[in-house]
Write a protein that binds this DNA or RNA. Structure first.
Length: 441
DNA sequence: TTTTGAGTTGTTCGA
DNA sequence: GTCGAACAACTCAAA
């Protein structure tokens, strides 16, 4: 059993199939191509998840570094394995890697069995009547519901082969004070049960409030597959439509990326490629200020600092900081997407990059070009008391709610140690709208 | 076959 | 202060 993004025992079709009548060797390959671009927080989460899985396997998980197409045939030969089981991966890198692995295993007479995926409905399954993939979310959602999905699979009983001890690297050096969630299959289950019993009925009203702990925080567990979306969907009541739709966004973007693998890096709508961006020293300075949470706009800076401190950012704030990068700083969405991918513990290529394209106006179902987030209004609306800003920006902690989202209006003068706004939102908004109009001709 | 209406996440302006 | 209109263009499915 080759574990990848499905680091769990229960509801794991590939594992159930592998265990059916055979002893099983559990393997995880630390592929340098995936390890290299990961920031320390995400690597720490991965290693901790692997340790949790290793415990579930009574210490029998094999963890090996190297390119999978090199490593797996060796492991199979050493273990006398006749088949490798895993879930399907629909991402651009994963599907190319799996083709190479299939070839390498074929050369040594080992069969390669792929079953299941990290999604309730495999990408490519939901089609329009014409057979074409959907480009608009709502029709996709209806068709996805109609398509339906399997009930969660029961956990298999597995005879794990005793093997070498896992060689899971030590956690990388983390920023002091970094707060990471508990991970692993048991922790994922506990987090989900807690959300089901305490959070989900407030979700539709409060999910946009970064000052409250009102989201499910399931993204990191879905990222590593310590819980399957099927299991979540099976627990939802009909009234939990809003949460079900969020799970469907993840499936929609995976479907879009499957049909358009280039859209991970390239503009989904290529006509937006012509947008002008700032460059040179100005661009470098702006990007650095945005990344460090020193733009002078409190809700933006709070979000960027939360990202560095937790490897996670509230979804509403992700939209705000993304809009700010693209529409206010006039930097390309790819720069923001790359920063998110490096630092998010839940980083998912499809959801991340298509979310960015949505904000930039170049994606499927893209935001209309005139929808520019005003960081002050967004702050007042979604962090009304300023608690979120206070939590992440100590320089502003003394400010009352009335001015905390526009500290430059504080009658006591600008707060010490906190930057003045690096751009004027109203002017940059006008510039962004003018750029879009010019592009349309 | 053509038409029609609806479609995640907003802001500003003028009445 | 509140409220509706305007700010495009295109996809999709139902009528």
């Amino acid at each position: 059993m080759w574990f990848r993004r499905d680091l769990r025992i229960s509801d794991n079709p590939a594992l159930s199939l592998a265990a059916n009548g055979s002893d099983v060797l559990g393997v995880f390959v630390l592929d340098p191509a995936l390890v290299r671009p990961s920031g320390a927080p995400r690597l720490a989460v991965l290693y901790r998840t692997l340790r949790a899985l290793n415990e579930q396997l009574d210490g029998r998980l094999v963890v090996q570094q190297g390119a999978p197409e090199m490593v797996l045939p060796q492991i199979c030969r050493a273990a006398g394995a006749t088949a490798v089981h895993c879930a399907r991966d629909f991402g651009p890198y994963g599907s190319a890697r799996d083709s190479a692995v299939a070839e390498a295993l074929g050369a040594v007479d080992v069969s390669f069995v792929q079953v299941g995926s990290p999604y309730a409905v495999d990408p490519g399954e939901v089609r329009k009547g014409s057979g074409e993939p959907y480009q608009v979310y709502t029709p996709f959602y209806r068709a996805w519901l109609d398509h339906g999905w399997e009930q969660p699979h029961r956990p298999p009983s597995v005879n794990w082969i005793a093997a070498r001890t896992a060689r899971i690297p030590h956690d990388p050096v983390l920023t002091p004070g970094l707060r990471l969630p508990d991970v692993g299959e048991a922790a994922a289950g506990r987090a989900w049960k807690a959300f089901l019993s305490q959070g989900i009925d407030r979700y539709s009203d409060e999910r946009d409030r970064p000052d409250l702990d009102s989201t499910s925080r399931m993204s990191v567990h879905l990222k590593w597959g310590t819980i399957h979306p099927r299991s979540l969907l099976a627990d939802l009541e009909p009234r939990h439509e809003v949460y079900r739709k969020e799970l469907a966004w993840r499936e929609f973007y995976a479907d879009v990326l499957h049909h358009r693998p280039d859209s991970a890096r390239e503009y989904y709508h290529s006509q937006l490629r012509g947008l002008p961006y700032v460059s040179g020293e100005l661009a470098r300075a702006r990007l650095a200020a945005w990344q460090a949470g020193r733009t002078g706009y409190p809700i933006v800076d709070a979000g960027m600092r939360q990202l560095l401190a937790e490897g996670w950012m509230h979804n509403r704030v992700r939209m705000i900081v993304a809009s700010f990068l693209v529409k206010d700083l006039h930097l390309e969405w790819t720069q923001g997407a790359r920063h998110f991918l490096r630092h998010l513990i839940d980083a998912d290529l499809a959801s991340n990059n298509h979310g960015w394209q949505w904000v930039a106006g170049s994606g499927t179902d893209a935001a209309p070009y005139f929808r520019v987030f005003n960081p002050t209004l967004q702050g007042r609306k979604f962090d009304p008391r300023g608690d979120y800003v206070r939590r992440w920006i100590p320089e502003l902690a003394h400010l009352p709610a009335k001015v905390i989202h526009e500290p430059w209006t504080d009658p006591n003068g600008p707060p010490a140690g906190y930057p003045e706004p690096i751009v004027d939102h109203a002017a940059e908004r006008d510039a962004a709208l003018a750029d879009f109009r010019a592009l349309r001709g």
